[in-house]
């Protein structure tokens, strides 16, 4: 199991200095959802810079646009207006193939509802991101095993997702997000479905990733305690940034 640190975490106060390198730059992002009857302004003109190595949390009431914003950052959704740059790359200029390669190398996702592939064993689920880059079966196996060890699940490799508990599924999802060693991890309520003990464990893994490997992490959460452990908190209300 993962050791839980008890000492106060030291916040990096100089992360938002002008010297720090910007990892994710959102400029005047708008997202409008149109259905037959209503038009929802899910994101209202948000501009945000997230530095390399920063651990940012996003909070706000349900339906305020947190997931939408995270998906836009992760290039899973297109903004209606505005630009997304990741690691100085303007992502609007990428075609489908380049975009796929870019997501593969730079980004790792952790979804609130896990989104594991039930037809695949745990190990194959974790190997998934490596399938879409040049790697041998042996390398994939080794990296996936290491990732599963990091989340403390090396004894469940041959199981199918349906045979796991919620917390175990989320740890598989984390292993899958980190196996390709992406520079950015985007987590949408990673502890939302878990009890507080399991939630703390997951949080510890994320904090370690951020501290040891310098991974940039953006996490949506409803939990003030979790948010307090991160470097910076952004609050949304009705699609606008309020803090």
């Amino acid at each position: 199991m993962i050791p839980v640190e008890t000492t106060e975490r030291i916040h990096h106060t100089n992360l938002n200095d002008n010297n720090a390198e910007v990892m994710i730059r959102l400029q005047n992002i708008n997202k409008v959802y149109r259905t037959d009857t209503v038009e929802t302004l899910a994101i209202n003109n948000i501009s945000l810079n997230i530095d390399k190595g920063e651990f940012l949390s996003i909070m706000g009431p349900s339906g305020c646009g947190k997931s939408t914003l995270l998906n836009i950052m992760g290039l899973l959704d297109n903004p209606t207006k505005g630009e997304v740059s990741i690691d100085k790359q303007d992502t609007t200029k990428l075609n489908d193939k380049k975009l796929a390669a870019f997501r593969n190398r730079k980004l790792g996702f952790i979804f609130q509802s896990y989104h594991l592939i039930n037809d695949l064993k745990v190990l194959d689920n974790v190997e998934l991101p490596l399938l879409y880059r040049n790697s041998t079966a042996k390398e994939r196996r080794q990296l996936a095993t290491e990732a599963l060890e990091k989340v403390g699940l090396s004894n469940r490799m041959k199981h199918f997702p349906t045979q796991l508990s919620g917390g175990q599924k989320q740890r598989v999802a984390i292993a899958r997000a980190i196996v390709g060693q992406p520079e950015i991890i985007l987590a949408d309520e990673p502890t939302g479905n878990l009890d507080s003990a399991m939630g703390n464990e997951i949080m510890e893994i994320l904090l370690q990733l951020n501290e040891r490997d310098g991974t940039t992490i953006v996490m949506v959460t409803h939990d003030e305690n979790m948010a307090r452990k991160t470097h910076r908190l952004v609050r949304l209300f009705d699609g606008s940034q309020v803090q």
């Binding site: 992760g74 899973l76 489908d96 193939k97 975009l99 796929a100 390669a101 997501r103 593969n104 190398r105 980004l107 790792g108 996702f109 989104h115 594991l116 592939i117 037809d119 998934l128 991101p129 399938l131 879409y132 880059r133 899958r176 390709g180």
Partner: peptide, 16 residues
């Protein structure tokens, strides 16, 4: 479709 979404999120292109 959910599997397709996951695969795309982790780097599969449409062609793949």
């Amino acid at each position: 479709s959910s599997e397709i979404g996951v695969r795309k999120a982790f780097g599969a292109s449409g062609m793949t």
